[in-house]
Amino acid sequence: MNDKLKQIAKYILFMAVGAGLFYLAFRNTEFEKLANDFRKADYTYVILSIIMGYLAFISRGMRWVLLLEPLGKKPNTWNAIHSVTVGYFANMLVPRAGELARCTALYQTDDIPVNRLFGTVILERVIDFLMLLFLVLLTLILEFDLLMELIDTAFSATQGTGDSNTGLYIKIAIGGVIIIGGITLYLLREKFMLHPVYQKVRDFWDGIKEGLKSISQLKSKTPFILHTIFIWLMYYLMVYICVFSLDATKDLSPSSGLLVMIAAGFGMVVPTPGGIGAYHYLVMLGLGVLGVASDDGVSFATLVHTGQLVMTVITGTIAAGFLWRARRRKKLAASN
């Protein structure tokens, strides 16, 4: 199978995963109620969520400029911001396409080699992974029982069947697989170390170590740290502030909002176009363990996701126009 066919097959798989999760989220939804919830929603909070989402884009672009400093590169800040925005726009269409799109866009405006740009994007992934891990640990401290219930619900194959023992059976089965797998890997460790999967895991771990080392070499460490905190604060607030837009969610506490943000974060990690399906399903489950009915959870997830989708489309389109103008100016300058 050639690379093009592999990409097509991968995209079809991502679409299928998104469609399956979309079905799971909306299978019991009364669309008349969903429309009524949208009519009654307080869009002041949705607008604030949209603003916070774009502020995260801006901060991420500014942080990217800081990451490029150790490489001796200084791109135009707004070009970097617009490239990040175009990257998010591309991810809506093709999962994981955004990384290449943003690197290509900045290369075309600022002549920074794509391979060097891509290295900084990999570093960003590592940072995002560590931040998400930190927030999961924080949620474990603040909402341990609820997070465990969310994990149980997400992995349960028997929602609505009434079989209370199946979750236990699944845990036992997973534990058995882990133990047997661990013993097998130990006995066959020399062969496994030559396997491509092991190489990918090792490369990922090496990337984490290299990324942390690169951060220590930053010239502007404090602004970088502040941008990282600000980005994730915006991610949290753009989800939590929307709880006040619906009557069914307005009484959720800030720590409960953190649980919902974790569910939303994992929903966006699942490689479906724009997080569609995965976001709705996991946010619905997250709200479910907080006592919010599934149809209200779907209404909330759809409201937040649609707001961010609209923001990404609008800002991505505008950013593409600015980048086109920047490329045109560069060509005109080169021809003179």
Results as ranks from 00 to 15, higher is better:
189 R>N: 07
173 A>R: 10
194 L>C: 14
169 Y>I: 12
189 R>F: 15
162 G>P: 00
101 A>D: 00
195 H>I: 00
173 A>T: 15
109 T>A: 07
143 E>H: 01
167 G>D: 12
158 T>L: 12
168 L>R: 14
134 F>H: 07
139 T>Q: 06
153 T>K: 10
157 A>W: 14
196 P>S: 06
150 L>H: 00
197 V>C: 05
111 D>E: 11
93 L>A: 12
179 I>N: 08
111 D>S: 05
128 D>E: 07
126 V>M: 04
176 G>C: 14
127 I>M: 07
166 T>L: 15
102 R>N: 05
203 D>L: 12
193 M>E: 11
191 K>L: 08
170 I>M: 07
126 V>E: 05
187 L>T: 11
177 V>S: 08
136 V>D: 07
199 Q>R: 15
134 F>I: 11
171 K>R: 10
173 A>Q: 09
204 F>V: 08
174 I>F: 14
149 E>I: 02
136 V>C: 08
147 L>F: 01
124 E>R: 03
94 V>A: 01
194 L>G: 15
112 I>V: 03
163 D>F: 05
141 I>S: 04
171 K>M: 04
193 M>R: 13
95 P>M: 00
93 L>Y: 04
168 L>P: 08
178 I>L: 05
92 M>D: 08
194 L>E: 15
155 F>K: 01
156 S>H: 05
159 Q>D: 13
150 L>E: 04
181 G>S: 06
123 L>I: 05
151 I>P: 03
138 L>K: 09
199 Q>T: 13
199 Q>Y: 12
115 N>A: 13
164 S>C: 04
91 N>C: 01
145 D>K: 15
